[in-house]
Amino acid sequence: MTITMERPPGRSAAPPPPGRRRPLRSRRDNLAGYLFLSPWLLGFFLIIGGPMVASLYLSFTDYSVLGTPEWAGTDNYERMLTDDPRFWASLTVTLTYLLASVPLVQVFALFLASLLNRGIGGLTFYRAVFYVPSLIGGSVAIAILWRFLFEGDGLLNNALGSVGVDTSHSWIGTPDTALGTLVVLNVWQFGAAMIIYLAGLRQIPAELYESASVDGAGRARRYWSITLPLLSPVIFFNVLMNTVGAFQAFNTAYIVSNGTGGPADSTLFYTLYLYQRGFVDFEMGYASALGWALLVLVAAAAAGLFALSRRVVFYGDER
């Protein structure tokens, strides 16, 4: 939190700086801004802010959930950094997952959204088919299914066997590949990102393509010089949100590994570890510290993305 507070994200992050258009911010704008923002402000102070600050306080305490928090200074943070290999393990798992799944989701989602955007027959049907996996979210049914797909005598190995690759490798039961099956699960649910891309593509004025066609620009070139720039705010949104989401990935790992993060901690996502510390080990003070460390990490990643966005994201309200 402190990071974002001291260093608000770059120019492009928030809308263009005041003063570029009109040198003086009008009293009317101030009033209107705060009026429009008032529900959020109320929510921020009444619903989010209190619990957030409470958890920040708890992160400096020894709090067993059922007892009274006792001040512990920076003990929790020191323990995290110096005396907790599982913290680092969970961080590695999370970052691996993030780096694998975020780009893959974007590629799939953008590719299909572009395919579907081009006035194709049966659009409604396809869109529904690709989106349905996202509808079920982190259902228990999916957890069971994933096991059947990726266990030693599971569906994947059966399919591999029928093309001559005989293996009884349990993809989901072996530490080396278990995380991979969760990446696949995440990519399988690319539908949400796809829908956002589709909505974004729909906002690009068709006239731009027409005038480009007149100019003789080819398909690839049109995509590169019109679609991508105009879609960049949406791409940025998806990348940022999926990154934040990957840092906080919890549901699927919790359900698929029955809350353990196994085999052998190979799917121990950061938040799963935090959950175990808080709700299994009753070390809620430490869990809160883990939460705030994650916030700092995510904020740093987000700040990085915002900084990058300043150079590559194009907004329609800039001129």
Binding site: G49, G50, V53, L66
Partner: peptide, 24 residues
Amino acid sequence: HRRRLSATLASATATTLALAGCGS
């Protein structure tokens, strides 16, 4: 900044106090 922060802190104190009062 500081004023905002203290306002936030105040609203959080209520929750924190509640945390300390349970189970007794």
